[in-house]
């Protein structure tokens, strides 16, 4: 196929993806409001179909450009969207988060819709971006971003559920660990430390399939997702530094893009700490997860479009 035909294919499938996701989101919200099983299934089928079409769009984009399909901001956002939907769809059965589809897909549609504003036709990479490290670095950054995004949805919904369940808010703060028998608890800990284990979801009754999970469950899922994403983001930053060393002769230069990935990293490190700090578990930690996501989005939108640095995604 010619480059033009592949570009056309990529753009058309991009549009179809948006429509399918939108319909799936509407179905999911409809189910949340009216609890019709059939609607949930229809929505899910549309979500999976959308994912397949989305993947086709990304692949044809890569073929059209003759390189990996993450060479500019438009492509980056598109692939992150793909990863968010994939991560969500592959876990919704196990985690029983079927009711969240609408929120996840609506967010992805908003992101991808925004990406069309910065659409550029497929083209070659400038020499600085043409690197082996770039590929690993960006792949890691995209996976990390996708998981943080999913963690963000879980966190926001957990906060909404907390408000709803306010009377039972105590459920978010699990009982203190029992006194240890035998050898000591291992490692000296600061006085205001609480073990950062996931909140005990087992004692809370599981929400029926297709209903929003409890605040505790959502909080646990958010924690799991973020804990999974954190080392990936760490590696993204490290690979970025290795790439910068090869391309620009310095591994770290406090370029705005680097600053904001660092801020994102530090805020999520703070989130992990907050979950192990007396008085910070629960709502305050959740707010940090939201701030971390905010830093991620700021880096993607404001830094790339307003504060152009060395990183050539800008412009």
């Amino acid at each position: 196929m010619s480059t033009e035909a592949l570009t056309q294919l990529s753009n058309t499938t991009f549009g179809i993806t948006l429509i399918l996701y939108l319909l799936a989101a509407v179905a999911s919200f409809h189910h949340l409001a009216f609890h019709r099983r059939g609607v949930l299934t229809t929505g899910r089928v549309m979500g999976w179909t959308g994912l397949a079409v989305h993947a086709a769009s990304v692949v044809s984009r890569g073929l059209a450009a003759g390189r990996v399909p993450w060479g500019n901001l438009y492509e980056y956002v598109t692939v992150v969207g793909l990863l968010v939907v994939a991560a969500y769809l592959f876990t919704e059965r196990v985690w029983r988060t079927e009711a969240l589809g609408g929120f996840v897909l609506a967010l992805v549609v908003a992101g991808m819709g925004g990406a069309t504003l910065i659409y550029v036709p497929p083209g070659p990479l400038v020499p600085a971006l043409n690197s082996y490290w770039l590929r690993i670095h960006v792949v890691m950054a995209m996976i990390g971003s996708a998981l943080f995004t999913l963690g963000f949805v879980f966190t926001v919904l957990s906060l909404l559920q907390v408000r709803k369940e306010r009377r039972h808010a105590a459920a978010l703060t699990p009982a203190r660990a029992p006194a240890l028998v035998g050898a000591d608890g291992g490692g000296e800990r600061p006085a205001d430390y609480v073990p950062a284990e996931e909140p005990d979801g087992s004692s809370a009754p599981a929400a029926p399939r297709g209903r929003l999970p409890s605040a505790t469950t959502l909080d646990r899922l958010a924690y799991r997702t973020i804990v999974f994403a954190f080392p990936i983001w760490t590696m993204a930053v490290i690979f970025g530094a290795i790439w910068a060393e090869e391309a620009w002769g310095r591994y770290w230069g406090w370029d705005p893009k680097e600053v904001w990935s660092f801020i994102t990293w530090v805020v999520f490190a703070a989130y992990l700490h907050a979950r192990a700090t007396v008085g910070w578990r629960g709502t305050r930690a959740a707010v940090l997860a939201i701030v971390g996501f905010g830093a991620l989005v700021f880096n993607l939108i404001v830094v790339n479009t307003v504060i152009a640095g060395l990183h050539s995604y800008a412009g």
Partner: peptide
């Protein structure tokens, strides 16, 4: 833990300024 947490957030907030105000190095 609280001090560590607050210092982490402080470093994060301090870094923000360097991306908003132009830096002599960059």
């Amino acid at each position: 833990m609280r001090t560590a947490l607050i210092l982490l957030l402080l470093v994060a907030v301090a870094s923000v300024f360097g991306s908003l105000v132009p830096q002599v190095n960059t």
